[in-house]
Amino acid sequence: METLERLLLGHEFLAGIDPALGRRLVGCARNLRFAPGEYLFREGGPADEFYLIREGRVALELHAPARPPIVIESLGGGEMVGASWLVPPYRWGFDARATADTRVFGLDAHCLRGKCDADHHLGYEMMRRLLPVMVRRMQAARQQMLDVYGHPPA
């Protein structure tokens, strides 16, 4: 348990967090491993866990009928995966697949939501860390939408 606490609080997502607050997350956390090709979660599935990647590579995929799936973003060590655990109805909006040997911390969503609800100080701390990542990814998605490298319209 002591090792999990040290490793968890050492993750980039929680960098600089007040150890007293950070320790409260340890009870929600577990270590997980995914082999290449294994899914962390699938679109539509219950968003019951929040993932912090320790090492490896995770591809976020979307699929549509009669088209090959496309990877819309890839994430590596130090990054977090998924925000649907925070937003009702707590269902994943895409697939997340390991593309390399990947080690993550999984934080139980029910546990995490409960602690954040009970302690708004902790909840605010989590929001402060989640929101910049979400904004950065939204901006990146907008840039991708521009298709800047593609052929300009004739």
Binding site: L60, I70, I72, G76, A100, A140, Q144, D147, Y149
Partner: peptide, 16 residues
């Protein structure tokens, strides 16, 4: 910017 699943490299924008 996007890839099919056979691509094992990064997917995302350059600033990332």
């Amino acid at each position: 910017d996007h890839a099919d699943p056979s691509w094992h490299g990064h997917v995302g924008v350059v600033p990332a």
